[in-house]
């Protein structure tokens, strides 16, 4: 770990944190509508894992997708404009927060049906394998998705066909308002589902960006060697509600505060940087300044982008080429 890399990880996580905080503010101001799911608290997973991918690799994810999109390098301006429903958004204002796409970056979507994108992850990997392409697929999903049939169908197909996929389970412990203990019969062992499909799996601390990075690197090496799928369960916690509409009546404030105080991935990484003489307070400030500028710019960009007209709504329903 050198100073530059440390800065990169810190910047990656802070960019997501502040982007999400800005989204929350803009939602309260009525600039952003609809469902808005913030990734605050889970930043280490997106940054630690996606930083290990090559440009040949593919990402597909769930509706809490801003963090993955930003970590992959998607333009914050385009994302914010999309959230504002403006014509310069990534889908010209037709898709919104839950459905970010950037095919050039192989960012194959945020998808808003729990577990519904997992069969598609299988297909992307199948397509790559059939064309003898190098890439692998990282499919992010939450603890809620493991109780969907599509999760199990996808796990079986990926293992049966020996496809290059990392099933990345972001276990933030709540499917909307239902704790994993109230939804899974064996809640501490979700990663063990992989055993049934003869698939290697591991459970890691998803709040530690370096643990996430190392586990991802190891998984990628294994996949390149063995060409079969792997499941990683990363334990995490979302600091905000499920969506902006969440009254958070299902968990105690003390629980949220305890996680924020003891396991904030950004604070943990800052402590690591200080104790290893990688970055100091003045470095933190310069990263913070850089991020603030990015966020302000994307808010300005979104604000100044025009609204789409009906010709946009009627476009791209079918591929007419």
């Amino acid at each position: 770990m050198d100073k530059q890399l440390a800065k990169k990880y810190l910047l990656g996580m802070l960019k997501i944190r502040q982007f999400e905080e800005a989204c929350g503010r803009m939602y309260m101001q009525g600039k952003i509508k609809g469902f808005l799911h913030l990734y605050i608290g889970e930043e280490a997973i997106a940054v630690g894992s996606i930083s290990e991918l090559s440009e040949d690799d593919y990402i597909i994810t769930h509706y809490r997708d801003h963090g993955h999109a930003l970590a992959r390098g998607m333009d914050p301006n385009k994302i914010m404009a999309e959230l504002y429903g403006r014509v310069d958004g990534s889908s010209r204002g037709k898709a919104g927060s839950m459905h970010l796409f950037d095919s050039n970056l192989h960012f194959m979507g945020g998808h808003a049906i729990v577990g519904g994108h997992l069969p598609i992850a299988v297909g992307i990997a199948l397509g790559l394998k059939k064309q003898n392409k190098n890439g692998l697929v990282v499919a992010f999903f939450g603890d809620g998705a493991v109780n969907e049939g599509e999760f199990h169908e996808s796990m079986n197909l990926a293992a049966l066909w020996k496809l290059p996929i990392i099933f990345y389970l972001e276990n933030n412990q709540y499917g909307m308002g239902t704790h994993v203990k109230r939804s899974s019969a064996n809640p501490d062992m979700l990663y063990k589902f992989a055993d049934l499909y003869g698939m290697p799996s591991t459970k890691i601390d998803g709040m530690d960006v370096l643990t996430v990075r190392d586990s991802t690197r190891e998984a990628i090496d294994k996949i390149r060697k063995n060409n079969g799928p792997i499941l990683i369960e990363a334990m995490t916690y979302r600091f905000r509600g499920h969506s902006m509409a969440d009254p958070s009546a299902y968990r105690e404030n003390e629980e949220v505060q305890k996680w924020q105080k003891e396991k904030d991935p950004i604070e943990l990484f800052k402590q690591y940087c200080i104790s290893n003489d990688l970055l100091n307070e003045s470095d933190f400030k310069s990263v913070d300044d850089e991020v603030k500028e990015i966020i302000q710019e994307c808010l300005n960009f979104a604000e100044n982008s025009p609204l789409p007209d009906m010709s946009v709504a009627k476009d791209k329903i079918y591929n007419i080429n």
């Binding site: 297909g123 992307i124 199948l126 599509e150 079986n156 197909l157």
Partner: peptide
Amino acid sequence: PISESGFVGAGIGSSMVG
């Protein structure tokens, strides 16, 4: 396998990459 959602989704995903 008898996994209609699984293999239809697999078809969709494969078509997205050519």
